[in-house]
Design a protein around this nucleic acid. Sequence first.
RNA 1: GCCCCCUUCGUCUAGCGGCCUAGGACGCUGCCCUUUCAAGGCAGAGAUCACGGGUUCGAAUCCCGUAGGGGGCGCCA
Length: 512
Amino acid sequence: MAAASGNRPESTGRAARQENHTMEVRTRFAPSPTGYMHIGNLRTALYAWLHARGHGGKFILRIEDTDQARLVEDSVRVIYESLAVTGLDYDEGPDKGGSVGPYVQSERRHIYREYADKLLASGRAYRCFCEKTEKQEEPPQGEEKPGGEQDGPILGYDGRCSRLSESEVQANLSKGLPFVVRQRIDKDGSTAFKDFIYGDISVENKQLDDQILLKRDGFPTYNFANVVDDRLMGITHVMRGCEYLSSTPKYVLLYKAFGWDCPEHIHLPHILGPSGRKLSKREGSVALSDFLNRGYLPEAVLNYIALLGWNPGTEQEYFTREDLVKTFDIARIGKAPATFDEVKLAWLNGQHIKALPPEKAHELFARFYPAELAGRTDLAKLSAHIQGKVEKPSDIPQMTAFLSKLDEGYSAELFVNKKNKTTPENCLAALGDLKALLAGLPAWDFASIYAAVLGYAGEKGLKLGAVMWPLRIALSGLTVTPTGAIEIAELLGRGESDRRLGLAMEKLRVPL
RNA sequence: GCCCCCUUCGUCUAGCGGCCUAGGACGCUGCCCUUUCAAGGCAGAGAUCACGGGUUCGAAUCCCGUAGGGGGCGCCA
C-alpha cells in the first residue's frame, strides 16, 4: 500500500501499481469477427500477448461471435492470419484446442444458459418480456439537431419486469412470450473497482441499467458472455479498450452475483485518428491489412503501436518483438489517449527495413516494383541500393519510375544549383566530357564508372558534387533520387545512359 | 441530459514534491560528409507543463474548481 497519500484513495501512480504474482498469468484476446483487424484491437492483443509471454503465462484466443446479425463471412480467418503474420501466437484457441474450450462463443450457448439459470434461481436476474428497444439511429453527420435539445438517448430500462410476480412470469411463459434475461441491479449505493491503469473507479448504482444477459435469440450479450468466459477460462488479466471503463461496474456486480473474485482489469487508453476521435475507418487506415499492403512490416507496426500508450522508461524506441517481450510492463501503460501518426510509423518501418537481411528487403520491395522495370534493370541490386532509404515500400513505384521511363519534359533549370555552383554552361561542358568518357569505358559497373567520374572531377579541380549534380539530373530528370547518380548509370546500362546524357545536352544548348 | 475518464513541444512521450532554466523520439531548420536529395553524424527552433485557486520553505508533480477533449448510457461488441 502506498501510504504517502494518507487515507485518501490510493495513488494510481505507476509506483503504486503492483502486480499479483501468485497465480499463473492468463490473458486473452477476444475479438469479434468483423472482417478486418483493427489496429486498436491489434494493440490490445499485443499488450495481452506481451504480458502473458513476459510472465511465462498463457495467451488465449476467443472468438466473440454472439451477434448473429453481424456475422461476416471469412472473418475468423482474418483474425487467424493477422495473429500469424504478426507472430502473436496463442496457446489455446478455436483451432488450437485447450482444456477450457470451446473457444467460440456461439458454441458455448449451453454454458451461458446454465449460468443465467443460476442467477435466475438466486433472484439475481429476472426474465423481461418487454418490447425490444433498439438504439435509435444517430442523425446523419453534420446535420443540425432541431431545437438543439435532443442529444443523447433517454436513460435505460425502468425495470418493470423485475416486479413481476412468479405467477405472472409463469403465465407469460406458458403463453410462449419471448423474453430476455436481465441482471437485477440494486439501485442503492455505488459500485467501485480498481482498474490497474485508471485506479479507483466508482459509479452510483442508479446509473446502471438492468443489463440484458441473454438476448431473445438465446445468445448472450457481450457483457454476460465476457464475464462467464473470462471466469471459466481462468483469465487473470482482462485487457480491453477504455470504452468499457464506465460499464465495468456492471461486470463487477455480475462477478459478485456469482460470488466470484474479479480478475485484474486493465483498461487501455484509446488510439485516436488525426481528428482527435477514436481511430475509425472514415479517416484513413485502421485495418492491419491496409498497412501490410503498403509494405509496412508486421514487426514495425507492432513496434509502433506498442509505443502508443506505453513506454519503456528508457530512450529506446526501436524494438523487435523479442525486445518487447523482455521490456514490456503493464505498469508503464499511460492513461491519456494517443494520436496515431503514420509519419512516425514510416520512420520506424524504415528502421526495421534497414535491419533486414538484403534478401528479405528485396523480397519485400519486389512486390512493389512495376512490371516494366523487371526486364530493364537488376532489381536485386536496386533493392540493395535503396534499402537504406525506403520507409514506405508502396512509394517504390513512384520513386523508381524514372528508371524505366525518363520524363523527357523536365526543365533545364534544374541544372542550376547555387551550392554546387552549376550553370547551364558548365553543366553542358561537364556532361559533354562525361558522355565521351563513359562511352569509352571498358567495363560498365559501379567501380569503373565511379573511378572515371572521380578522376574527371579531380582533373578539372571540381568538387565531386558539382559533377554529380548534372549527371544525376541528366540520368533521371530529377534532383531527388533514391540512389546515387553512379548507381543510376549502372542500373540504366551504357546505352540508355548515353542516350539520356545526349538528351540533357540538347536541352542545355537551348538558352533558358 | 446523466455518468466515467483524460489534459507536458505539431505528434508519441519522460517526469511520482527540490536533480526541470522540463529530457528523449518523429517531423521541421541548419551544419558536416570526395555522390546533390536521402541516409548517417552534429546542432537548433519548438512546451509560461489546459486555466484558476489552494497545500508546501519549494509543485509539471498533491488537493479543489473551471474549461476543453474523449468515452459510456443497445436484445453492438
